[in-house]
């Protein structure tokens, strides 16, 4: 179990990513990511353990024998991680990881994992507007460049997830994988439209919904004046309003879960107090078809 607060306090992002991935991948033998530009090579007899999705069912119907197709991979997978670095991502309790800290380590681990597979990984960060764009490439040097950009990332400005997603989709040269890491505090309709567009183009999408325990539970007692991290707007409220808050927030989460599920998007809700390797492992198992969250 990797404590997020501990991990985010370590400066060497590459080491953190390696530790996280090593801990996550133990026991998972199959890669959850697949290349798209694969060329059929030959048939071979089915052997126990082979993935059933490669079984040629038509051939089985004709010959009554089970064969699996073998492909020759011609190109690597193209992955782009889109990280929300708006001011709301700065939130976190004293002594624990902020949402941006958590997103940074999560992104580093995913990048490391994908890069180690030999696939191309790229990065888009945004706040009010697009900040960093690192095109998807392979190689250790490229990964290091990406990690440096991640480590320099700071949270500021309002969220414009829809615009950033639109730009990231446009920047991805061919069909690939888009991973959005955000707290999703943006206009729901615009975001949904951009997600639909990405799916239509043929990209595979994953959404990591990063939250803190405070946002889920609204633990404040007595009167508090809350200041919006992004807009600076202030609101006087009290702990008595927590029930209404939790109800509204639960609706928000449920809407996002349904929206993603409906669009065939992998939706992962992670809280900053959850061990990183557990969160990552859950995601990988979900992609492998083992466990769904």
């Amino acid at each position: 179990m990797l404590d997020p607060a501990l991990l985010t306090s370590i400066g060497d992002l590459e080491m953190v990513a390696r530790v996280t991935v090593d801990g996550t991948m133990s026991g998972i033998h199959r890669s959850p990511f697949h290349g798209y530009s694969a060329e059929f090579a030959q048939y071979r007899h089915y052997r126990p353990g082979d993935d059933l999705k490669y079984v040629d069912w038509k051939l089985f119907a004709r010959t009554d024998r089970v064969y699996t197709k073998q492909y020759r991979e011609t190109t690597n997978m193209l992955a782009q991680i889109v990280v929300d670095a708006s001011a709301s991502m700065a939130y976190g309790r004293q002594g624990s990881a902020s949402k941006l800290d958590y997103a940074r380590v999560l992104t580093a681990a995913l990048s490391y994992l994908i890069s180690e597979q030999g696939d191309a990984i790229g990065l888009v960060t945004y706040g009010e507007r697009l900040r960093d764009y690192i095109p998807s490439r392979t190689g250790r040097l490229h990964l290091r460049r990406l990690l440096i950009a991640l480590s320099k990332l700071t949270a500021s400005g309002e969220t414009s997830s829809a615009s950033a997603l639109q730009r990231a989709v446009d920047l991805l040269k061919r069909r690939g994988m888009l991973i959005l890491v955000s707290d999703l505090y943006d206009e729901d309709e615009r975001m949904e439209a951009e997600l639909r567009r990405a799916i239509r183009i043929g990209h595979e999408l994953t959404v990591f919904h990063v939250l803190t325990r405070d946002e889920l539970e609204f633990p404040f007692a007595g009167d508090v004046e809350l200041e919006d991290l992004e807009t600076g707007q202030r609101v006087l409220t009290s702990g008595a309003m927590s029930t209404a808050y939790r109800r509204g927030f639960a609706d928000f989460l449920e809407r996002w879960r349904r929206r993603c599920t409906g669009l065939g998007i992998d939706y992962m809700r992670v809280t900053t107090d959850a061990p990183l390797d557990t969160a990552l492992r859950g995601y990988l198992l979900q992609r492998s078809g083992g466990v769904s969250t």
Binding site: Y91, V224, L236, T237, M241, F249
Partner: peptide, 19 residues
């Protein structure tokens, strides 16, 4: 002091109701 509630930063006020 009771007049002035503690001021806290929060990610979003979308779901917060005002008293």
């Amino acid at each position: 002091r009771a007049h002035r509630a503690d001021r806290l930063l929060f990610p979003t006020l979308r779901f917060v109701r005002t008293t």
